[in-house]
């Protein structure tokens, strides 16, 4: 029948456009396409204070995103924050004296881990550790120190 044939086409078009919408949401809107587990390697950094860092916060080097934070835990023996960074496999030439620091994007933006490459010839491998770290700058702490210092200078 002619009628049912056009109906079939319309149903087909409808289903296809619905699925296309879902794909659009998955790939264009959410972060599904960016970093997946299997093509990355993990390194660990210990911070005195990791501030407002969260799982999935970006890890960047020279301003380019090269990975993301995969886990944050507290070490009860050393009272440090243990941050696992999963770095994209294609950036596997980070020297083992790389410095990790927690920065804030802008004054009120989200926090991220910045890696500054060192000069060593040895590269960080999967499961490697970053020895030199710099804690997050806590705004309240910095303000408190500043106020304390200016009060001391007045005396």
């Amino acid at each position: 029948m002619q009628h049912t044939n056009t109906q079939d086409t319309f149903v087909g078009l409808f289903v296809a456009s619905g699925i296309a919408g879902l794909f659009f949401l998955a790939l264009q809107v959410s972060n599904l396409s960016s970093f997946t587990e299997h093509d990355s390697y993990t390194i660990t950094a210990r911070f005195e204070n990791s501030g407002g860092l969260k799982v999935k916060s970006p890890v960047s080097s020279a301003g380019v995103k090269i990975g993301q934070v995969s886990a944050i835990s507290f070490d009860p023996k050393t009272y440090e924050s243990v941050v696992k960074l999963s770095i994209d496999k294609q950036y596997n030439t980070l020297p083992d004296d790389t410095t990790a620091s927690v920065f804030t994007a802008g004054l009120l933006g989200e926090q991220y881990v910045n890696l500054d490459a060192g000069g060593s010839d040895e590269y960080l491998k999967d499961g490697g550790k970053i020895e030199i770290t710099q804690s997050a700058i806590i705004l309240e702490k910095a303000l408190g120190q500043f106020l304390f210092k200016s009060a001391a200078e007045k005396k």
Partner: peptide, 15 residues
Amino acid sequence: LSMPLLTALFSAVGI
């Protein structure tokens, strides 16, 4: 079956 497809379309077109 239609509802998730319609919703995906709604959100995608809205964005």
